[in-house]
Lab assay of single mutants.
Amino acid sequence: TEKEKEVKRLAKERGLSPDQVRELAQRAGFSPDQAKQIADEFA
């Protein structure tokens, strides 16, 4: 999704850790499970 792409782009730009990616995703409105899946891509 657009929102997911945006979260991943920000995460890459900022060099976020997987935990930070998960927090960012949840703040963007993703469920905890979705946020974990997104964060796992950065693990």
Rank of each mutant, 00 (worst) to 15 (best):
T1V: 13
T1S: 14
T1N: 13
T1R: 13
E2H: 10
E2V: 12
E2A: 09
E2F: 11
E2G: 09
K3W: 12
K3L: 15
K3S: 07
K3V: 11
K3D: 06
K3N: 07
E4K: 14
E4P: 03
E4M: 15
E4S: 14
E4C: 07
E4L: 15
E4F: 12
E4V: 15
E4Y: 15
K5T: 12
K5W: 12
K5H: 10
K5M: 13
K5L: 14
K5Q: 14
K5N: 13
E6D: 07
E6K: 06
E6Y: 12
E6P: 00
E6I: 09
E6M: 11
E6Q: 10
V7N: 03
V7C: 06
V7I: 15
K8Q: 04
K8C: 03
K8G: 03
R9H: 05
R9V: 04
R9K: 11
L10H: 06
L10W: 10
L10T: 06
L10Y: 11
L10M: 09
L10A: 06
L10F: 08
L10E: 08
A11P: 00
A11T: 01
A11W: 04
A11C: 00
A11N: 02
A11Y: 03
A11M: 01
A11K: 02
A11H: 00
K12R: 14
K12T: 08
K12S: 09
K12F: 11
K12I: 09
K12D: 04
K12N: 08
E13R: 05
E13T: 06
E13P: 01
R14V: 07
R14I: 08
R14W: 15
G15R: 09
G15P: 01
G15Q: 12
G15T: 04
G15K: 10
G15L: 05
G15S: 08
L16K: 02
L16Y: 13
S17T: 14
S17I: 04
S17A: 10
S17Y: 05
S17G: 07
S17K: 10
S17W: 06
S17H: 09
P18E: 07
P18A: 12
P18Q: 10
P18G: 09
D19S: 11
D19L: 09
D19M: 10
D19V: 08
Q20H: 04
Q20W: 04
Q20L: 06
Q20V: 03
Q20N: 03
Q20E: 14
V21Y: 02
V21E: 02
V21R: 00
V21W: 01
V21F: 02
R22C: 04
R22M: 15
R22F: 15
R22E: 13
E23K: 07
E23T: 08
E23N: 06
E23Y: 06
E23S: 06
L24R: 02
L24F: 07
L24S: 03
A25F: 04
A25E: 00
Q26Y: 09
R27L: 15
R27E: 15
R27G: 09
R27V: 10
R27P: 00
A28Q: 08
A28M: 15
A28D: 03
A28K: 07
A28I: 13
A28P: 00
A28S: 11
A28F: 15
G29F: 01
G29T: 00
G29M: 01
G29Y: 00
G29P: 00
G29R: 03
G29K: 00
G29N: 02
F30V: 02
F30T: 00
F30H: 01
F30A: 04
S31Y: 03
S31L: 07
S31P: 12
P32F: 12
P32M: 08
P32C: 12
P32V: 12
D33V: 09
D33W: 09
D33M: 11
D33E: 14
D33Y: 08
Q34M: 11
Q34V: 11
Q34A: 12
Q34C: 08
Q34G: 03
A35D: 00
A35Q: 04
A35H: 00
K36Q: 15
K36W: 13
K36S: 11
K36D: 12
K36A: 13
Q37R: 15
Q37A: 14
Q37D: 05
Q37M: 11
I38K: 01
I38N: 02
I38T: 02
I38D: 02
I38M: 06
A39W: 03
A39V: 04
A39M: 06
A39N: 02
A39L: 03
D40C: 11
D40W: 14
D40A: 13
D40Y: 13
E41P: 02
E41M: 08
E41Y: 05
F42T: 05
F42R: 03
A43D: 08
